[in-house]
């Protein structure tokens, strides 16, 4: 990956609270190449959505980026003023959220919202923008787009609304789309349609996607690479086939084993005992060590960096010998 489109380095997101500062994202680094789909997977509270929000500059106060760099096409965007960031959002980075209803303004027709977005970011007249809007709606699979453009969000079903949100996200042909749980609120059959749509759009436009989800199945279907997050850190990152078929980090192994499968018959699912630590009680060393079956001394003392582990990289001392070779 010579020229990454998005580069995140040592990102740290903090929440000052009255009981002290909580670190919700801690030392997260990854990169996304143009046209690549990076899946970010993790359980609730792992920091995956906050990572996405930090990149598009939509962290809810009092949350703040405390350290690290975010670069888009080589340009730092984490310290941009609000106005500059707002222009980047929409024009160069599109966003899709879990609940399509909150992304659409119920008071305006979807056509008006689309035209507004298009005209904000592209130099276009009203009529041209409207033509483009209808084109976009057609592209995301809304039948009879010419008629439906003047309808309001409540006249659309959940799946159709999410299509409209996707149309809004790609309206200005951004280089990167951040999709935060885009299919979680939808039924399985609709979910499959939306996944297929997202895949097709990336392929056609060469858009890179950061796909944040808790659903390994969606990642398997969609992503090229996947980052598995745990307690605000990346536990494992690598090509999706490698991580899913041969997970390296004990957390990923447990996570994959705990997913019920449609194939075969098991009396019990693989079980990781305990729960993810609360942000105010993240263990020292490796954050996973109290729940890990293969824990040893070093895990309790030192925090592991991402180390080479087969096809992927895992933040686990089990792979420490590999790192020594590399470090030499």
């Amino acid at each position: 990956m010579s020229n990454p489109l998005l580069e995140v380095r040592d990102l740290r997101v903090e929440f000052p609270t009255r009981r002290g500062t909580l670190t919700a994202v801690d030392g997260v680094s990854f990169a996304i190449a143009p046209g690549e789909v990076l899946g970010v997977v993790g359980e609730s509270g792992a920091g995956k959505s906050l990572t996405g929000a930090a990149i598009i500059g939509l962290l809810e106060p009092p949350g703040r980026i405390a350290a690290g760099e975010i670069r888009l096409d080589g340009m730092r965007i984490d310290n941009l003023p609000h106005e500059a960031m707002r222009r980047i959002r929409g024009r160069r980075i599109g966003a899709i959220f879990q609940d399509p209803l909150t992304s659409l303004d119920p008071l305006y027709s979807i056509g008006r919202q689309l035209v507004e977005t298009i005209r904000t970011h592209l130099d276009m007249g009203d009529a041209a923008a409207r033509r483009r809007a209808i084109e976009l709606l057609g592209e995301v699979g809304i039948p009879a787009a010419g008629q439906r453009i003047d309808q309001y969000p409540h006249q659309f079903s959940g799946g159709m609304r999410q299509r409209v949100v996707i149309a809004l996200a790609i309206a200005a042909q951004p280089q990167l789309i951040i999709a935060d749980e885009p299919t979680t609120a939808l039924d399985v059959s609709i979910q499959a349609q939306i996944i297929a749509l997202l895949k097709r759009l990336c392929r056609d436009h060469g858009t890179a996607v950061m796909l944040v989800t808790h659903d390994m199945g969606v990642i398997a279907e969609t992503a090229d690479r996947v980052a598995v997050m745990y307690a605000g850190r990346i536990a494992e990152i690598g090509p999706v086939a490698g991580v899913i078929r041969a997970p390296r980090h004990p957390y990923t192994i447990g996570l994959m084993g705990s997913i019920p499968s449609l194939v075969g018959e098991r009396e019990h699912l693989l079980q990781i005992d305990g729960t993810m630590p609360r942000l105010n009680a993240i263990p020292t060393g490796c954050a996973f060590h109290p729940r890990c079956e293969r824990v040893f001394d070093r895990c309790q003392r030192e925090r592991p960096d991402l180390l080479d582990a087969g096809a992927s990289r895992a933040a686990c001392w089990l792979y420490a010998s590999g790192s020594r070779k590399e470090g030499a």
Binding site: S189, I190, A192, I195, G217, V218, A220, E221, R245, S261
Partner: peptide, 22 residues
């Protein structure tokens, strides 16, 4: 259709035809 719509974790690469409509 329901079975077809489940994301394929086994990554068999089998092409799926998402059923149209809602």
């Amino acid at each position: 259709m329901l079975l077809d719509a489940i994301p394929d974790l086994a990554m068999t690469g089998k092409a799926r035809t998402p059923v149209a409509g809602e």
